[in-house]
Every structure is written in structure tokens, then in C-alpha cells.
Simulated scan of single mutants.
Amino acid sequence: MQNRAELLLDYLSGIRSAKRVLKPSQFDCAFFAAGWVKACTGVDLASAWRGQYRSLDEGRTKLKAAGYRDLDCLAAAHLPEIDGWNTSQPGDIAAVSEGGHTALGIIGGPQIHVLGLKGLDYLRLDRAERVFRP
């Protein structure tokens, strides 16, 4: 049985080796985080959303229609929230804001692993606005 740090390393390595890149409704930041939650828990939180939108803007519209202000509210509906990034652990889900929108990433120590336009990237841990534990 792997510990969470080993499991996270395997999850991120699999994404890198598969050269997965941003594709709305198939592999965007929500599916990146949901894939990690599934790896940890076996529960696929994204199954109802897969293939349901063609652009990130359309995805945000569907999210609002489902009653969620943004991705952090969707995460909060399914995962316990942790009190700030300073109490986070590797493998926690971080909500960050970029360009007026919320994105989800995975905390990996002093950084947040995020999905960029060309694949995996990272941000400083202090960019986390909300943190959730799978």
C-alpha cells in the first residue's frame, strides 16, 4: 500500500509520461483534481461532467447552472475544507484564482501542481485561497 506522497508522485508521473494537456471537459483543472481524488478514494467526482462542455467558458456556465459559483464551491460540496494553506498536506486540493477565475491544483509540499496550457506546471503554495482534503 502506497502512502499519499508516493501515490501523488505516481499520479503526476503518469500525467507527465502520457503528455496530457488541457482539453476542456476531458482533462482540465477540474478533471486533474478529480483524477487525484479518484486515485485517493476510488470515487470519480467528475463522471457527470465529462464530455458535457466544449470550452472552459461553457463549463463555467454549466457549473453556475448547477448551483456552484465556481470550482471551489463544487470542491467544497464534496470534500472537507482545511483551514488555510499553512495547515495543508501534500495531496490536498488547492483552489487558486487566475484571471478572475478559480482553478484547482494539487498541493505537493511548498508548491501547488497545476495544469497549464502545455501540461503540468506549479505555483507557490501561498497562492492557495481555499484547501480541501480528499
Rank of each mutant, 00 (worst) to 15 (best):
N3K: 05
L7A: 10
L7M: 08
S13I: 14
I15N: 05
R16Q: 13
R16S: 11
A18V: 02
R20N: 00
K23E: 02
F31S: 02
F31C: 00
F32C: 01
G35P: 03
W36P: 09
W36A: 07
K38M: 09
C40E: 11
T41K: 04
V43P: 03
L45V: 12
A46C: 01
S47P: 05
W49C: 00
Y53H: 14
S55W: 13
E58I: 14
R60G: 02
T61P: 00
L63Y: 10
L63I: 07
K64S: 13
A65R: 14
Y68H: 11
R69I: 15
L74R: 09
A75G: 09
A77H: 13
P80H: 06
W85G: 05
T87C: 14
A94N: 06
A95P: 07
S97W: 12
G99K: 12
G99C: 04
I106M: 06
G108N: 15
P110K: 06
Q111K: 08
I112F: 05
V114L: 02
L115T: 00
G119R: 01
L123G: 06
L123M: 14
R124L: 05
R124Y: 02
L125N: 10
D126E: 15
R127G: 04
R127I: 04
E129K: 15
V131L: 13
F132D: 00
